[in-house]
Design a binder for these strands. Structure first.
Length: 259
DNA sequence: ATGTCCTCTCTTAGAGGA
């Protein structure tokens, strides 16, 4: 079974790219971020025609997350993270597919540092960690997937020294990510490729993709119950070079079949 | 500071966000 995460940066603007990638990559489950569309403008029919059922948590202009599934029963568990009632940003959706809890998340960017946006990011991280711990405690197979807006280590940044005061690389945020891992989660890409330079995002500016000036910020975290099923993982870096591409590339993992 | 590209509007240019 192949599970992917992809920050599409506008699902309607990128629809041709998304559909082409789905057809070529044929993932079974997909977590999408940055839909940048309200619920009523989610391209449900186009995805259905491509063979995918979907659930989504949209918002006008900003944010927005969705989970797609092909030939599988996709059961919505909830939208939004608990812990901040007045939070109107659509950044989280959770579903059950094939007995696996799929958590699709879009962590706040947090820039500029310092400031209220950075503070919101840290609060959101705390809320995620609390919920993640509760999921961990169930002992179920759980996957946290999405755009975490964190480069976990220096290996994940093309020029670490330039990012020290950026909200994606500040010590507080890297510590928060490490604390999350310490609950018992496995970073799937790093588990399989502990020392490789792997990026999932390249800025639109300054030919970042052509220079491979990238960041690794899209992650898969696996609960202990499911980590043993991990057999492969990768980044579809070529997609980033397509016409009208998102600034992120799709990231995927492959799990051993249950049977 | 800038670069680019998305979305939306007091819309065809500019603002806000990443």
């Amino acid at each position: 079974m192949k599970i992917a995460t992809y920050n599409v940066n506008g699902i309607n603007g990128r629809l041709p790219v998304l559909l082409r990638w789905l057809e070529e990559a044929l993932p079974d489950i997909v977590c999408l971020q940055e839909l940048k569309a309200p619920d009523e403008k989610f391209p449900e029919q186009a995805l259905k025609d491509a063979g995918y059922h979907a659930i989504w948590n949209g918002q006008k202009s900003w944010n927005g997350v969705a989970i797609l599934a092909r030939n599988k029963n996709l059961q919505l568990i909830g939208k939004g993270l608990p812990g901040e009632e007045k939070d109107v940003q659509s950044r989280y959706i959770e579903a059950a597919v094939d007995g696996i809890i799929i958590c699709c998340l879009y962590m706040p960017n947090g820039n500029p540092y310092p400031g209220p946006k950075f503070d919101y990011k840290l609060r959101w991280f705390e809320r995620l960690a609390k919920h993640a711990q509760e999921l961990m405690d169930t002992g179920l197979p759980v996957i946290l997937a999405g755009d975490f807006n964190v480069m976990p280590t220096e290996l994940d940044v093309y020029k670490p020294e330039r990012w020290l005061n950026d909200a994606l690389f500040r010590t507080e945020v890297r510590v928060a990510y490490q604390n999350l891992l310490n609950q018992g989660w496995t970073d799937a890409i790093r588990k399989l490729y502990p020392e490789d330079v792997i990026y999932t995002f390249w800025d639109y500016f300054r030919n970042a993709y052509q220079r491979n000036a990238g960041l690794r910020i899209d992650h898969f975290l696996l609960s202990p119950k499911i980590k043993g099923k991990l057999i492969n993982a990768g980044v579809d870096t070529g997609v980033r070079g397509w016409e009208k591409s998102s600034d992120h590339a799709p990231v995927w993992i492959e799990l051993k079949h249950k049977k």
